[in-house]
Nucleic acid binder design. Sequence first.
DNA 1: AGGCGTGTTGCATTCACTGCAACACTCATT
DNA 2: AATGAGTGTTGCAGTGAATGCAACACGCCT
Lengths: 252, 252
Amino acid sequence: MSQTVDRALSILPLLAEGPADLGQVADRLGVHKSTALRLLRTLHEHGMVYRQSDQRYRLGARLFALAQEAMENLDIREIAHTHLVRLNEKCGHTVHLAVYEENEVLYIDKVESRYPVRMYSRIGKPVAITVAAVAKLLLADLPEHERRALAEKLDYPMYTSRSTPHATAFLQELAKVREQGWATDLGGHEESINCVAAPIRGADGRVVAAMSVSAPNVVVTADELLTLLPLVRRTADAISGEYSGRTPAELQ
Amino acid sequence: MSQTVDRALSILPLLAEGPADLGQVADRLGVHKSTALRLLRTLHEHGMVYRQSDQRYRLGARLFALAQEAMENLDIREIAHTHLVRLNEKCGHTVHLAVYEENEVLYIDKVESRYPVRMYSRIGKPVAITVAAVAKLLLADLPEHERRALAEKLDYPMYTSRSTPHATAFLQELAKVREQGWATDLGGHEESINCVAAPIRGADGRVVAAMSVSAPNVVVTADELLTLLPLVRRTADAISGEYSGRTPAELQ
DNA sequence: AGGCGTGTTGCATTCACTGCAACACTCATT
DNA sequence: AATGAGTGTTGCAGTGAATGCAACACGCCT
């Protein structure tokens, strides 16, 4: 919509791939060097890019700070956090909180497993949308046409032999999840890792977030993990209640 | 330098404070609503802002993803990580890795304490620059004039009674740190938390990052924590060696 | 219906962005 | 030293893209 801003913003994902010098940036944007220079300078002034000692540009610190601040301000996150910690204390496994946002699902909070074997994931990282248990819950709640459109558009990478293979299977799975009100991922993302997840709903019943407990096979079997389902659902419901009902502030 | 981009980028920190509607954004930018709308639309197309159900704008998912990707690509981080984990396994305390970037120091990696009492911090969050042990190391290595200029410019918040009170004291502390090659923060940020830190150097001897071990008083006293100094320094040196010498790839 | 507070669109004006070409600078190479 | 290739940087003139305006559309409340 706005050419200049559009170009400037296009620089960021480009730099995310790795540092680049002025010429490279200009080329990939399809503009003159001087134009690229001025855009980069503006980005630099705002701390969005950083000029390293070899003069090449990298993404800057402000970007982290912004992402950080934005995350802290999510109210679901704030409300949920103590519940997640308490759940982690009870079961010891990794606990995740995720939200859906414009064709992406991302983790916005995480409490690390207390077992030595941990799974890899990071707050802010987009989730493997076609297999993750939390993603299934979040997508299952979308309006039908939107869900369908998204499912068609997605890629279905076969992380493991149990990954969701294609849109049809995915939509079927979503229907099931929608029906039962909870979801699992049994080795669909990483062969040895299972998850069980439950939805967090707002006052209107819409799913606003989803939480999951994940653990590797070497710690507990899938069946054992499933015995935690009632606990996970109760936690999710508690968060739902607090989120949609009176806020903690009003309770005081 | 570029007005349009400048305005667009100014929207981001504004939204980081919390969601805002079109009118608020336009007012705070000092531009017409229609102008703000077009800027927001461009930001939206790039996923930098998100329009929530009540039509107000929030920071978007792409921002997180970008910050994430940028972080993953830092080579020091990658090299250091296994060392940090190993150190954590030996001592059990929280381990941090931080870098300096344009008047800010930020954590780029963290391994959580294995003790139940943990300190609060987050990757990407700017560090309390006047008191943190890692910050002292990173600033102590700046060229003299730059160090001086920065020290004058900083605020000196008194987090605790032992926080660095003003520029003079800070510069003195930096001189000491520079001399001895390691740094501490004994209750300067949070009354009950102590840190001990060591520098990571590139091939040219310049400090490229700093790492620290932190623990609350209730777990170990400051004196006990200091006994870890040799271990911390050895770890930092190992990382320095790997970073400046041949990379792991070449070693194979 | 009416009136307020939103967000949105088309359009003329103008000013900010663009590309160019010339310049400055750092390295290699001879 | 001198040359040249490869960078990043600056001043300038032309123009097209961004701007503010005013009119419109919509939802919400009385």
